[in-house]
Nucleic acid binder design. Sequence first.
DNA 1: CCCGGCATCAATCAAAAGGTGGAGCGGCGG
DNA 2: CCGCCGCTCCACCTTTTGATTGATGCCGGG
Lengths: 213, 213
Amino acid sequence: MTTTDAPVRLLLADDHPVVRAGLRAVLETEPDFTIAADVPTAEAAVDLAGRLEVDVVLMDLQFGGRMLGVQATAEITARPGAPRVLVLTTYDSDADILAAIEAGATGYLLKDAPPEELAAAVRTAAAGKSALAPTIALRLMDRMRTPATALSRRETEVLQLVADGLSNAKISKQLFLSQATVKSHLVHIYAKLGVDSRTSAVAAATARGLIRR
Amino acid sequence: MTTTDAPVRLLLADDHPVVRAGLRAVLETEPDFTIAADVPTAEAAVDLAGRLEVDVVLMDLQFGGRMLGVQATAEITARPGAPRVLVLTTYDSDADILAAIEAGATGYLLKDAPPEELAAAVRTAAAGKSALAPTIALRLMDRMRTPATALSRRETEVLQLVADGLSNAKISKQLFLSQATVKSHLVHIYAKLGVDSRTSAVAAATARGLIRR
DNA sequence: CCCGGCATCAATCAAAAGGTGGAGCGGCGG
DNA sequence: CCGCCGCTCCACCTTTTGATTGATGCCGGG
């Protein structure tokens, strides 16, 4: 589709004008990069990613407080001949990283990355290879190595509702479970996180980026 | 000290290279702005704010995950003939805003602000007037108007520890209180937030930006 | 094919948290 | 000066949560 030596065509998607300007400034200095467009919404990113011929989309995860980046990533990568999507966000939460990768992201970077790292990641992504920030890579390794810290899908789901302030009764109704099951999940969650109460579980999980907040 | 029509000299302090580049790009287009320097740490900001002759410091609150911006702001504004400090951050939490203002910040902006708003705020700050983002101003008004949502200092303190996952027993020890007092505070907190459990209190307070994280 | 992890549910007891009502003290402003 | 509010504490009772033990069905890998 695109030869490796041709300029890399970029689409920037971030709701912060300052960040878009910053990315432009940082990436425009690279002679082999061309910035096709920058957009402030996830919808515009999905739209332009299809209509413009771009190689890499730099995608933020949060748009105006909402987490629309993941859906946008999924929609973009679902199409045939889709560009690579490089997720660029402020937070390094396990949940976000996994979600982004599952949605088809080629890489995951943090916004505090130095310009060189950013440019390198874009080139890596353009070449179709996976680009993970060192911090992220470490976290994933950690997660693999100690599966104890990794909560199961269902457990994460329950814990998220706990973090939202729901009681066991409410959670059981919301998930169509018995309270016994909710309690059971919580026992396992506490064991994995090394805590003994719902509030400390939420605190620990938030600190480790296991749940959203 | 500085005549009002002279160029406004700026110092940018933010740990994200991309944001610094973005701010440069956005503010350099204003003919009456001069960017004296940009720094990636709070320490450097304090240092240069004293040695360079700048009019306004654009200060981030988070530096590498730490909240050093408030201290830096306090140190800068404490000196005689200090420049104005304009806090520019991602989050709009009540606690952060109040802390920044108490530390002597002249204004408080969100990073998702459009460039014009940013430039306007810088001019306002340079003129010595207070510059608050509309969202922030609204929040503060709200806080004033409905003191019900405003937690007292002590209540906020207790709730923060709850959010950190501590039990009532731990909280009472940490704050040198009886458990009765902690419970009493919690009852008031629940009433003010319209909730009935610690987890939902944390959720509500986090959503309203009453507590950190 | 069988084991282990995941998800589901039950029963019971102990502990923590929440609800209610009351009370004393110190500061600040009308 | 007095009342209000924030902060502190007590006692009693109810509800929720946590701890323990145990059981069932499903699914996927060795």
